[in-house]
Amino acid sequence: MTNGGTLPVPWLTVTDRLPLFPLSSALFPGLVLPLNVFEERYRALVGDLTALPEDAPRRFGVVAIKRGQEISPTGQDGLDAGPLAGLGDDPMEALYGYGCVADAAGIAERDGGGYELVATGIQRFRLVSVDASGPYLTAEVEDVPDEAGQGAGALVTEVVRTFTAYQKRLAGARERSLSGQEFPDDPTVLSYLVAAAVIAGTDQKQQLLEATDAAARLTAELRLLRRETSIMDKLPSLPAVDLTQQPICAN
């Protein structure tokens, strides 16, 4: 994540249509997501992205799954599982209502099929409708602009202090390795960095993604960080955790 703030996305109109990639967790703007793609439906999605002109953006929507599973039993074998496999009959009920546009880079095709790629979160969106008539889901989406909100700047110092204490408590013996860590000054960028790094369930992460503005997100994060730090203070030492490492999502 950079310190330059969240930029507008001129290509995303009030309503636009995107290929949709449901995952078990939320993606935040500015964060990097490695993907290991092997299910037929998502191989088709990435194949269509690679077929675009070289100078065209390779973008798709990432949305967290509310009810269902990320990988279907059939899809584990690379077979055609259908666009709704693991999600039931109604994708609008199976998926959360807000997601994040992702920009794909470094797409590499593997021997025997499938792809490895790295996607970067760009901009939040709201789901308007989902189409399951093709080999993979597509969605009509609305751009959700990012705003700082009243008092966001004043929250930055306290969030950084509390988040640093949270990191140190998690890191345990590696506490010294966290000293001197730099954080972005932009409230929106900081709010997404903390949202991605904090250890929380999908529902809590989704609430942070859907916050009305950075001030509301930072306020919610302060409550969450203080609560979690208080709980950890009452528990035995925890093993070191690398908060900056993002897991590779296999569909």
Rank of each mutant, 00 (worst) to 15 (best):
M1R: 08
N3L: 06
T6H: 04
T6K: 04
T6P: 00
P8V: 03
T13V: 05
V14R: 12
T15C: 03
T15L: 07
T15P: 00
T15A: 11
D16G: 15
R17Q: 08
L23M: 04
S24E: 11
A26N: 04
L27P: 00
P34A: 07
P34L: 00
L35M: 07
F38E: 06
F38L: 09
E39S: 09
Y42H: 14
R43G: 10
A44P: 13
L45E: 03
L45G: 04
L45F: 07
G47H: 10
D48R: 13
T50Q: 13
P53C: 11
P53G: 07
E54I: 09
R58C: 12
R59L: 07
R59D: 05
A64Y: 03
I65G: 02
K66E: 11
K66A: 14
R67P: 00
G68S: 09
I71N: 08
P73K: 04
T74W: 12
T74S: 15
G75M: 09
G75S: 06
Q76K: 15
G78Y: 06
L79V: 04
D80F: 06
D80Y: 10
D80M: 05
G82V: 09
A85Y: 10
L87Q: 01
G88D: 02
D89L: 08
P91F: 07
M92S: 10
A94Y: 07
L95R: 06
G97Y: 00
G97D: 13
G99L: 07
C100N: 10
C100V: 00
V101F: 11
G106K: 09
I107Y: 09
I107W: 05
E109G: 06
G112P: 01
G113S: 13
Y115D: 10
L117R: 08
V118Y: 12
T120C: 12
I122R: 12
Q123V: 04
R124C: 03
R124Q: 03
D131T: 08
D131M: 13
P135G: 08
P135E: 13
P135R: 14
Y136K: 11
L137S: 06
E140D: 15
E140R: 12
V141P: 03
A154E: 15
V156R: 01
T157W: 00
E158F: 01
V159D: 08
T162G: 10
F163L: 11
T164E: 14
Y166D: 02
Q167G: 09
Q167L: 14
L170I: 07
L170R: 14
A171K: 13
A173Y: 11
A173S: 13
G180E: 04
Q181M: 15
D186S: 07
V189E: 08
L193E: 00
L193N: 02
L193Y: 02
V194Y: 10
A196V: 10
G201P: 00
T202S: 10
D203Y: 00
K205I: 03
Q207T: 08
L208Y: 08
A211Q: 05
A214M: 02
A215D: 02
R217E: 01
T219F: 05
A220L: 01
A220M: 12
A220E: 10
L224R: 14
L224S: 07
R226W: 05
T229E: 05
S230D: 12
M232K: 13
M232E: 03
D233R: 15
L235H: 02
P236G: 08
S237P: 01
P247Y: 00
I248H: 03
C249Y: 12
